[in-house]
Design a protein around this nucleic acid. Structure first.
Length: 332
DNA sequence: ATTCCACCGGAATAGCGGGATA
DNA sequence: TATCCCGCTATTCCGGTGGAAT
């Protein structure tokens, strides 16, 4: 049934023709990122998960290249590389040909290399930029010549909070592109286009695509993942068409997979705190800490657990409810 | 209006570990 | 091998916030 699984893989950047309902955003990205020597552009893409920010950004690089533009580019996922030195190392190996396999190369070496005049314009895409632990790196990037930076994030406030004033005033003047949630109709058309490429014709009905689109709540990543899972499930059962039961199971399955992906990023102590919330929620911070201390030999401090909670909120794994003095947490 | 309470998160710093260097 | 150096995690300290109690 599945002819081309690549258009259902969220790691693979799809062809331009599969990008629907994002014409304005695509134009804005292309003109903002188009490489120019001596430019120091800062561009922001904000919007909820699954609205195409990251995909369009990657596609923009491909299109600029096909357009004959000469430039160097790198994409840094700030979830995986949240610290200043993480980001600089990732950039250094891609953009300034410094081999950095070690964690003991001084950061100063990296910044000074970055500040050398390059022979081609450069583009850095910071994906999940609101996960940056240390926004000073934005200052480093701003001072680098012929370097355009695209920040991708969910929330403007998350990115600008904790940004030192000297950084904010220089960086925050950049162009800003907002990504809205897809409507159910838009999402249905996106799924239809993907299904046309991925499946033999007639494998899934328009009504089933609409059901997935409606359940995905504007999130194309969840929707496309669910489409993939529905088809895989049908294939495993030896069916030639996706059944309604396959569709029914696919959405929660897709959500679960995406959550497992986030959970795998946690340390074992953080995971323990998550399990306490999942098994006992809604639960107050004081009770979370009490259970946590009795569960481990050498408990971390309250402040550290607060940082864990903060991190898990960012990952959309837990959610606080109520005012501060009667706060409870639940797992999502 | 003022104080109290529980929680929140920024800033500075210590301790640790791992690669680099001699 | 011993020491150095750097960055990372956790800790310490503390001011802030919003609702509740007085």
């Amino acid at each position: 049934m599945i002819r081309d699984p690549r258009v259902l893989d969220d790691e693979v950047v799809p062809d331009h023709e599969l990008i629907l309902h994002r014409r304005d955003e695509m134009e804005a990205l292309l003109s903002a990122l188009r490489p120019r020597m001596n430019a120091r552009d800062h561009v922001f893409a904000f919007g909820p998960t699954g609205t195409g920010k990251s995909t369009l950004a990657r596609l923009a690089l491909t299109l600029l290249e096909e357009d004959g533009e000469a430039f160097d580019a790198t994409v840094v996922n700030c979830w995986k590389f949240p610290t200043r030195s993480d980001v600089l190392r990732a950039i250094a190996s891609d953009l300034v040909s410094v081999t950095v396999n070690t964690r003991s190369t001084p950061t100063a070496d990296l910044t000074s290399k970055l500040h050398d005049e390059p022979d081609r314009p450069r583009i850095v895409i910071l994906d999940e930029a609101d996960q940056l632990a240390d926004t000073d790196v934005l200052y480093d990037l701003h001072r680098a010549p012929s370097l355009a930076v695209l920040y991708i994030g969910n929330d403007e406030d998350d990115l600008f909070a904790g940004m030192a004033d000297r950084v904010r005033s220089r960086v925050a003047t950049g162009r800003r592109i907002d990504f809205e949630r897809y409507s159910t109709d838009e999402l249905s058309e996106i799924l239809e286009a993907r299904a046309d490429h991925a499946f033999r014709s007639g494998a899934i009905s328009m009504r089933q695509l609409e059901a997935i689109a409606s359940a995905a709540d504007g999130d194309a990543r969840t929707a496309i993942r669910a489409l993939k899972l529905a088809a895989e499930n049908a294939t495993e059962n030896g069916h030639l068409r996706v059944s309604d039961a396959d569709v029914e199971a696919a959405i929660p399955h897709a959500r679960e997979q995406l959550r497992q992906k986030s959970l795998s990023q946690l340390t074992s102590e953080q995971r323990l705190v998550y399990d306490i919330i999942r098994d006992n929620g809604p639960i107050s911070p004081a009770d979370i800490y009490e259970r946590y201390t009795s569960a481990v030999n050498d408990p971390k401090t309250k402040r550290t657990v607060r940082s864990y909670l903060s991190k898990m909120r960012h990952y959309n794994l837990v959610e606080p409810h109520g005012p501060r003095n009667s706060r409870t947490y639940t797992s999502l």
